[in-house]
Write a protein that binds this DNA or RNA. Sequence first.
DNA 1: CTAAATTCGGATAAAAATAATCGTATTTTT
DNA 2: AAAAATACGATTATTTTTATCCGAATTTAG
Lengths: 135, 135
Amino acid sequence: MIKLSKKVEYAIMALQYISENSSKTNTAKEIAEKLSLPYDFLSKLLQTLMKKGLLVSQLGVKGGYMLVKQINEITVEDLMNALDERSRIVECADNDGSCCSRTEICDIRSPIMNLQEQINNIFKNTTIANLKNNI
Amino acid sequence: MIKLSKKVEYAIMALQYISENSSKTNTAKEIAEKLSLPYDFLSKLLQTLMKKGLLVSQLGVKGGYMLVKQINEITVEDLMNALDERSRIVECADNDGSCCSRTEICDIRSPIMNLQEQINNIFKNTTIANLKNNI
DNA sequence: CTAAATTCGGATAAAAATAATCGTATTTTT
DNA sequence: AAAAATACGATTATTTTTATCCGAATTTAG
Ligand code: FES
Ligand code: FES
């Protein structure tokens, strides 16, 4: 059950698309069409990225989205933080021990948090540009 | 959405428990009680591990489960393969290109499969023994 | 031989998370 | 004023995960 959410997956594609067309504002509609992604869903997601400061938007006709950073400065972790609700590999891997009734007897909390960190590092070190296929 | 399934999480705990009590067969009931895990669910999961060859079981009274390998020879990847349905980070990261209608225009399939491999490596290199807290 | 403790197996239900959609409001350009 | 966008909130649909239930088969012990 280690998978990227559709939000993150679509966001990667969208950001790459916007990056390729960075001379103009890119509308959600255009991105959705060109990449065959569901418009409403993509639209929401772009709004979220905007709120989180990863995109800027322009309202109204001729509106759309533009990058605020280069895609080699945006990591997969950034997208996961912006778009996904939870990103702990186990519930109990949050900092306070108030996660579950097993805290007392639990042997795995701390080592699993270590595992968590290894995984985080991968996402932290992978930029959206890294995920671009340059055939 | 990068998290371990409960199946895998419980399995880690259960295998560690069995390992600590490897002189006898361990019943699902005992393990569930000692670790405060839901019996039915754990029971199913142990049966699966048995079918996949990670445990041996003995039927009937005095029955239960025993390890077939040491826990330092069992990896998190083994558990994920045995217990989780899907473990691709994106649908499209399977080998044939028949995943979705975007294959033609998709720029991220191959690099994401690379990302996938990095993550797999972590799970492949983490044994159940590694996840044991030795305070 | 019977009863009890177990694993086994299938089916199903409940809960949670993800993905998708809808409707309306607001902003901006022409 | 009309059109083309984003913004926002609510809701629904779908899928996945988690949990439970029931009855059968197996083994041990008395
Ligand atoms: S299971 Fe909750 S602390 Fe480990
Ligand atoms: S989205 Fe299906 S191939 Fe990339």
